[in-house]
Simulated assay, not measured.
Amino acid sequence: MIPDAGAQMRKGVVEYCVLGLLARGPMYGWELAERLTAEGLIASIGTLYPLLSRLRQSGWVRTFERPSESGPVRRYYELTDSGVRQLAQFRTSWTPFARSVAGLIAEAPPTARVTAEGEA
């Protein structure tokens, strides 16, 4: 994959991936970062916090604190009603969009290829 193309694709969907993870239940930042890093959607935890800040400012997520059994208090993130609606809208758009892109970039069968001269 062309590195710039992959970065652009990730930028377009990573916020919705965070919303999708949070739809499963509240998570703290480190948990989110581990999941997103494992999937190759973010490079490090440092790239997650500005994204979470934008999601909070947009009203799609909110935070709360919960004591940790193994250290300091953790800040958890959860979806707001607005975040639930945004995720639902994205889900409605994503499947047809992904299907269209997959169809357009799929390799054509050898018999369907056309040469520069217009011959099959």
Rank of each mutant, 00 (worst) to 15 (best):
Y76R: 03
A23M: 09
T111E: 15
A43W: 07
Q86D: 01
C17K: 04
P67A: 10
Y16Q: 09
T111F: 10
A102N: 10
K11R: 15
S53V: 07
S70W: 06
G29C: 09
E15Y: 04
V101D: 06
Q57K: 15
G6D: 05
V14N: 01
A112I: 00
I2L: 11
T47G: 11
V84Y: 06
L21E: 13
P110T: 08
P26Q: 05
L55N: 02
A43D: 13
V18R: 01
P110K: 08
E31G: 12
S82T: 13
P67E: 12
L55V: 06
E69A: 13
L55Q: 01
I45E: 10
R66M: 09
T111A: 15
T95R: 13
V18H: 01
D81A: 14
L55S: 00
L22D: 00
R66C: 04
A43F: 07
A116I: 12
T115V: 02
G20P: 01
S100Y: 11
F97S: 10
E69M: 08
T63A: 13
M9S: 11
A33E: 01
S44G: 11
S93C: 04
A98N: 07
Y49G: 05
V84N: 01
L21M: 12
M1L: 11
P26H: 08
L36R: 02
R99F: 08
G103E: 08
G59V: 08
R35W: 02
G40T: 07
S93N: 05
T63D: 08
Y49S: 14
M9T: 10
L51A: 04
E69V: 07
G59F: 03
G103M: 10
Q57Y: 09
A112F: 10
G6N: 06
D4P: 00
I42H: 02
G118Q: 11
R56G: 03
Y76W: 13
A33P: 02
M1D: 05
P26V: 03
A5V: 15
R62G: 02
T63G: 12
P67F: 02
Y49W: 09
W60N: 01
P110R: 09
Y28K: 03
L32W: 02
E34P: 00
Q89N: 12
Q86W: 02
R113V: 14
L51K: 13
S100W: 11
W94P: 00
S58K: 15
T95N: 08
K11Q: 13
T63C: 13
R10G: 01
L21N: 04
A38Y: 03
P109Y: 06
G46A: 10
G25V: 07
I105H: 04
P72F: 06
L32A: 05
M27L: 14
A88S: 15
E15K: 15
S82F: 10
W30L: 11
Q89T: 10
R75L: 13
S44H: 15
E65N: 08
E34G: 05
E15Q: 12
P3C: 05
G71E: 03
Y77R: 02
P110Y: 03
V84D: 06
E39Y: 09
T63L: 09
L19E: 00
T92S: 09
